[in-house]
């Protein structure tokens, strides 16, 4: 026993990464980028706020796809459910406090996460992907048909959120919306950093690598995945709510297959299984899309396609994943 204790004590402490320092650095970078964005594009804060909303969707997708290995093309269902929930709460039930709207959005997203999780997790591989496509179409059609609540294909208009804390009104330039969005993203990001390092997050990574091994440890694979789907739904719902609050309308496109597919593309672009990858993928894709579509309105999709092919072929771990492994190799050599 004495031998055991000495060998445990002799283990170098540096082997365990200093999470706090890394997370604080990451957080500082996010805030710096947010401030730079604010000063570089003061007339385009609406786009930046939209990026923040979609970033929450991509983070949410990363939780189920990157961390749990669930293939889905229906994740916008969770985002759209959050957007509609907060929009309907504001328009039909008079809940116009932005923080309450975000709360309602998170709950709406979580419920949608539970429902779609139950359906999608029934299948594996290709069947799973097809089920996810079916789910997004069903959500889309439900929102289209329930037009007395959702406004159908005209969209849900007339959302007018109160000032944040009764102090910061949502202005024409979108400064408040942007600040509100950055705050939401930072809070969610911190919570998710805790989540992915928690015992639950570790179990999810285990499921991604080998669900049979996880169930041989006595853990419920299905139960764990459903739980992650609900959490993921809440995150996407916050993103949807942010979108509803900042644009003051909710359209059917928030529940579309296209949005789902684009979110997956952004995640792959940045790198799955890493929160930083999700953020980098979103910012890169949406910024690139904006620049290229302005420069060449006719062929921008071609250029986006070429970028994707380049990333998938030459940096299959995504931008962040490839950069991280290059850095590791460099460190290993020095």
């Amino acid at each position: 026993m004495a031998a055991i204790e000495t060998s445990a004590a002799a283990k170098p402490e540096t082997a365990r990464p200093n999470w706090l320092l890394r997370d604080l650095t990451g957080l500082a970078i996010i805030l710096i980028v947010a401030v730079i964005g604010y000063f570089l594009f003061p007339n385009n804060l609406a786009l930046l706020t939209r990026i923040l909303g979609i970033a929450l969707l991509v983070l949410s997708l990363d939780l189920v796809t990157g961390y749990c290995g669930v293939a889905t093309l229906g994740h916008a269902a969770l985002f759209g459910a959050g957007a509609y929930a907060s929009g309907i709460a504001a328009v039909h039930f008079g809940i116009t406090d932005p923080i309450a709207m975000v709360g309602v959005g998170a709950i709406g997203g979580a419920v949608a996460g539970l429902l779609s999780g139950i359906v999608i997790l029934r299948g594996h591989g290709l069947a799973q992907l097809v089920l996810s496509i079916a789910v997004i179409h069903l959500f889309h059609e439900a929102a289209n048909k329930a037009s007395s609540y959702t406004g159908g294909s005209d969209g849900l208009a007339g959302i007018s959120p109160d000032p944040v804390f009764g102090l910061f009104g949502f202005d024409l330039w979108g400064r408040t919306a942007y600040g509100f969005g950055v705050a939401l993203l930072v809070i969610v990001f911190i919570l998710l950093r805790f989540l992915v390092r928690s015992p639950f997050g570790m179990l999810c990574r285990g499921i991604r690598e080998d669900p049979i091994r996880v169930s041989a440890m006595g853990a419920s694979v299905q139960g764990t995945l459903i739980k992650m789907y609900v959490i993921s739904g809440a995150v996407a719902g916050v993103g949807g709510a942010l979108n509803a609050i900042s644009t003051q309308v909710v359209g059917l496109d928030s529940l579309s297959f296209t949005t789902s597919a684009e979110a997956l593309v952004m995640l792959v672009l940045g790198g799955t299984g890493s929160l930083y990858g999700a953020l980098i993928g979103t910012v890169t894709f949406m910024w690139f899309e904006d620049v290229v579509s302005a420069a060449n309105p006719f062929h921008w999709l071609t250029i986006v396609g070429a970028l994707l092919i380049a990333v998938v072929l030459f940096a299959p771990k995504g931008l962040y994943g490839t950069a991280a492994s290059l850095l590791d190799r460099y460190r290993g050599r020095s």
Partner: peptide, 9 residues
């Protein structure tokens, strides 16, 4: 404790 969403082992 495998379902805990906070903390680290």
């Amino acid at each position: 404790r495998s379902g805990r969403v906070f903390g680290n082992f």
